[in-house]
Design a protein around this nucleic acid. Sequence first.
DNA 1: GATACATGTGTAATCGATTAACTACTGCTC
DNA 2: GAGCAGTAGTTAATCGATTACACATGTATC
Lengths: 321, 321
Amino acid sequence: MKDVAQHAGVSTATVSRVLNGHAAPTPETRVRVLAAIEELGYRPNALARSLRTTSTQTLGLVISDLMNPFFAEIARAVEDEARSHGYCVVIGNADESAEQEATYVRTLLDRRVDGLLLCPATDDPSLVREVSAGGVPLVLLDRTVRGATCPVVRADGSEALTSLARRLVGAGHTRIGVIAGPPNTSTGRERTDVLTGSLGGLAQVVHGDFRQASGSQAAAKLLDGGATALVAMDNLMGLGALGEIRARGLQIPHDIALAVFDDQPWFPLLDPPITVIAQPTVEMGKAAARSLLALIDGRQPDDVRLTAKLVLRGSLGEAEL
Amino acid sequence: MKDVAQHAGVSTATVSRVLNGHAAPTPETRVRVLAAIEELGYRPNALARSLRTTSTQTLGLVISDLMNPFFAEIARAVEDEARSHGYCVVIGNADESAEQEATYVRTLLDRRVDGLLLCPATDDPSLVREVSAGGVPLVLLDRTVRGATCPVVRADGSEALTSLARRLVGAGHTRIGVIAGPPNTSTGRERTDVLTGSLGGLAQVVHGDFRQASGSQAAAKLLDGGATALVAMDNLMGLGALGEIRARGLQIPHDIALAVFDDQPWFPLLDPPITVIAQPTVEMGKAAARSLLALIDGRQPDDVRLTAKLVLRGSLGEAEL
DNA sequence: GATACATGTGTAATCGATTAACTACTGCTC
DNA sequence: GAGCAGTAGTTAATCGATTACACATGTATC
């Protein structure tokens, strides 16, 4: 910057003003400075700028797993929305581990992100409190924690789940296997509670960990238990369940009915196509980014609840008639 | 930091020394300082540290699309490897657009990333030159550019592709549709060249853009042209092709043979399971991260070429016998 | 007891920007 | 021509760390 100033015959203050679009400099000076910048190929140091202004124009996003297409799409949406407002996004992979999540959150705070989006690995509120205590704007995404005091953006699958339950019961299923998420995550618990609630005593629940392998194992256990219908509570466990069903040579929906929470582009390609509860993923990501930006801006955004929808495609068999 | 120093009755220099594990401070002083840090909940400002040390412990990763599972997995692998070496990764989504790619690269340079991983959207070398001119360590991943002067990490599918071609020809296919990537990307061009080369005159090529919709369109065109086999050059275009095949009610492999470049976890679940050329995605990501870290470390890593493998699953029909 | 040397800590410059406070100049009014 | 306002630009403090250098103290050497 000093070089540019010298080159243009002005002080660094003037260069800075030109850069930040202040009113002061004459058009003439402005042109000279811009020419010098151009000529020297000068690019301002964002670190120095941030240190001085205490704003990094960066959001932190901590999610459980980038390879889970659900979170990848969320990340994509957050990134798009943030960029359109001039913000960058730093993504942290927590790998469904609370410690790694905490590590990442602290790293991001150390780097002075302007705000943080978090998909908490567990519903333990201590990390959230730590962030809030630091005064950093925080929005929870997809999952919440016990007694959360910050804005939360999530999907509401209650209606879809009860409707799904009604259909399964109506079609005469009496042993319905639920491949549930971890009970210490809000989504894991809530979805399962709603579904088993509407199923009366017909549900058998096995908890997985939102990963493919656990889906296979849970499916195996439930099939052994005589289940005639399976509901997987996220797309990766659904993938695992599908693998197990295939490995046993079972036919959907004749031998086993299947529904999965969270849609994927390839579900319609299976034979039969898979019935799902589709979450408005992109909208969730965008809404969360918007809420966070509002918070950074000093406003106090409301919680957002977007409804997930039951999409019937054939894998439930007669339950869809 | 000043507060901590005061609290511990030492100077900021000593605090800094304790923080950075210098030999100097007495165990006694060290304990006092650490106690003060603990008590005040002090966390060093990474921005200030970076400004002074000119090292951010951050890598930049610019990819085409986070929602493409191939890139998501790459990102995941890069992130894992980087973290295990104490580095963070900032991910930028270029959306297969050269301008957006350039914008992102510049943003990352402005933030003084210690090194950059780039999956170039086109094979135009100007952006690469710009980065190199700035003296920032750079490694290309998956794709290269014309006359690249930096390390490149990519998959080599030649063997798998020629082997695939041999099988298709051997099975008597005479009109083989190739859903190719954009000709201005190195992977798009090279894969297509190798395949059409080994197919003699039997190939019909339609170019897509590595996205699902283009895969459907290309498949439609090729099917209209009488193709009896399709090869999609990436997983998203493969997804699109599958959709088109299904929409027309065609049976794989009876009516149409299909192979896809790049494996996905759900390909084995289709009926029949899809034959693919599997890339060592995770290894690519890790290798690229390692190369970049080596470069940052002042060493001069070699190019890496990992071989992609043909995985026969049934969607080629008699070509697999 | 003076000299040298090691050791632990403090002082102050530095990284590269922003910005409040100040100065110099121009032009206008009375 | 003094006084005042307004404008363009400079000087220097500041953000929060690191680190070269200086300094004080304690120990070993002759």
